[in-house]
Design a protein around this nucleic acid. Structure first.
Lengths: 126, 126
DNA sequence: TTCTCCGGTTTCCTTTGGTAACTAGCTTTC
DNA sequence: GAAAGCTAGTTACCAAAGGAAACCGGAGAA
């Protein structure tokens, strides 16, 4: 068995971590976990995502086997994205991140304000 | 109480998510969770991280109140980074990501190979 | 006719990420 | 005594990624 280790730069684990530790991936998986969703539904749901970034992120998630894409030959064509079984094993972990962000956003903002205030004091003293 | 929602582009939660859903932040917190660590110790431990990126990431983590920095007036100066109590509440969530990456890296690599093979078949047919 | 929707791609510009070199002072090695 | 290595970063530079906006063709609604 090969040893995988995130601390090693050449380990493929690094690439995987780079793909899943991503803001857009977290939001996309979170929406898709509620059920299959079309491209423009995702776009409207995730405020601020551009079409280009959304399609790039979906392609990467599909390539990594976390999301599946189904096109229906309707007119105009309908494309439905959903979470694969592999993606579902990741969902719980990745949702914890956005949950943490929502719960602790105030503490982080306070820390930022303290840090910036301390920095401006130093600048005034100089 | 204000409503925080990661789906809204203007919500500060987005900024927080953007900071914590980061490869380097995950690795740094993972090392620091084992105990206070100096700058160059971190650099050697996390293979492939440049000094610039490491110092930027540490500054951001410190500003967000997740990591604390202590400088000792030794010669040469020693700087020790450690996880704050707020940062510790995030650790469990963020470690789950790198754990998932190590456990599922093979499944992801297989999915990528399947995806790329299917793509090259389409290209040959055309 | 014009507007909207479908699912994207293309173009362009800005921002970020990463590499390599450099700072300055002390310690160790040759 | 000179050269190299340690400490913790910063700076200049370039490649890569991110994001806004325009555009694609075809169909349905106003």
């Amino acid at each position: 068995m090969t040893q995988y280790c995130v601390y090693s730069a050449s380990c493929p684990t690094r690439l995987v971590l780079d793909h899943i530790a991503d803001k857009w991936a977290a939001l996309i998986l979170r929406v898709l976990s509620e059920g299959p969703t079309r491209f423009n539904q995702l776009r409207r749901r995730i405020d601020g995502v551009s079409q280009k970034v959304l399609s790039q992120a979906l392609k990467r998630l599909e390539r990594d086997g976390l999301v599946s894409r189904r096109a229906f030959p309707t007119v105009p064509v309908t494309v439905e994205y959903s979470v694969t079984p592999l993606g579902q094993t990741l969902c719980a972990q990745i949702f914890a991140l956005s949950d943490w962000a929502e719960k602790n956003v105030e503490a982080v903002l306070e820390a930022q304000a303290r840090y910036d205030a301390a920095g401006s004091q130093l600048r005034e003293a100089a």
